[in-house]
């Protein structure tokens, strides 16, 4: 059905379609965002490659969370937000007037900073996404697949009917990742997924991200530079709402072009 919609979109609204080069999943074009009168993001341009991990780093308040929330239009829930520019997903502008937020969020899943499982059973947490999207799948299968993909199956397989809030923080966060996988998204956005977790849980999630990039495109916001260096293929450095530098992670960390990036990475500022 999505394909059909996209086909119709393609025919009806040429302006909303722009072919992306092969291997590119998303593209951000001159994107600006305002909270009321305060500009939070200023003309950001960046590319997100398919089946790669892209990390966004930067000091607190630089707009990295706002930017990642723009990729599935989660900022629409805040009444004062206004945007300009385009974000292309597979060549379709998600900020086009005809774009359907619900459909975009089904294709671009999200994991939040704080683990936020629903107060349902573990299995129902996973199945919720399938339910609301009317996906015709067997509950047991999808629960098992997602929990296995999120590397939490072994820990919870005997307690699927227990309340998800009885899990530990790290387990809750992996459950949230599993929940995001249930609706078979193409891109997974992670907004500081490890900031509330201890080092062991963090390591598990980092391993998981490495696994996930085989099937998905991952964008991760982190305030932990070592984490960005460990898990990502591309890194974007933001400062005061602007994208200062974007490139391969190796290049950003070993040979940054901008002075500001170098200062931040070496810990002299930020």
């Amino acid at each position: 059905m999505i394909k059909k919609i996209l086909e119709i979109l393609k025919e009806d609204c040429e302006c909303a379609y722009k072919g992306l080069p092969k291997g590119m999943k998303m593209r951000v074009d001159d994107f600006d965002l305002w909270y009321g009168k305060t500009q939070a993001i200023t003309s950001v341009n960046m590319n997100i490659q398919k089946n790669k991990v892209t990390a966004i780093i930067g000091p607190s308040g630089c707009g990295k969370s706002t930017l990642i929330r723009s990729f599935n239009r989660m900022n629409d829930t805040i009444p004062t937000v206004r945007t300009e520019g385009h974000v292309w997903l597979d060549g379709y502008d998600i900020y086009d007037d005809t774009a359907d937020c619900v459909e975009i969020r089904r294709k671009v899943g999200m994991v939040f900073q704080k683990p936020n499982p629903f107060p349902f059973s573990i299995a129902n947490n996973i199945y919720y996404g399938c339910q609301v999207n009317g996906m015709d799948v067997a509950k047991d299968e999808v629960v098992e697949r997602c929990l296995k993909q999120a590397a939490i199956w072994e820990e919870v397989k005997d307690r699927l009917s227990e309340n998800a809030l009885s899990l530990s923080g790290g387990q809750q966060q992996r459950l949230c990742i599993a929940r995001a996988l249930a609706i078979e998204p193409e891109v997974i956005l992670m907004d500081e997924p490890c900031s509330a977790l201890d080092p062991i849980a963090t390591a598990k999630i980092e391993d998981l991200i490495n696994e996930l990039k085989k099937d998905y495109t991952v964008v991760i916001v982190t305030h932990n530079m070592q984490q960005a260096a460990r898990v990502s293929d591309y890194t974007a450095y933001m400062y005061l709402g602007e994208l200062i530098e974007f490139g391969k992670t190796k290049q950003i960390f070993e040979n940054p072009r901008e002075e500001s990036t170098e200062k931040y990475i070496t810990g002299r500022f930020g």
């Binding site: 989660m74 936020n116 609301v132 999207n133 949230c176 929940r179 995001a180």
Partner: peptide, 17 residues
Amino acid sequence: PGDLRDASLALGATKWQ
């Protein structure tokens, strides 16, 4: 908590759902 609303919306649920 607003977190739960965000989580649900991010899974492609409509506001009413």
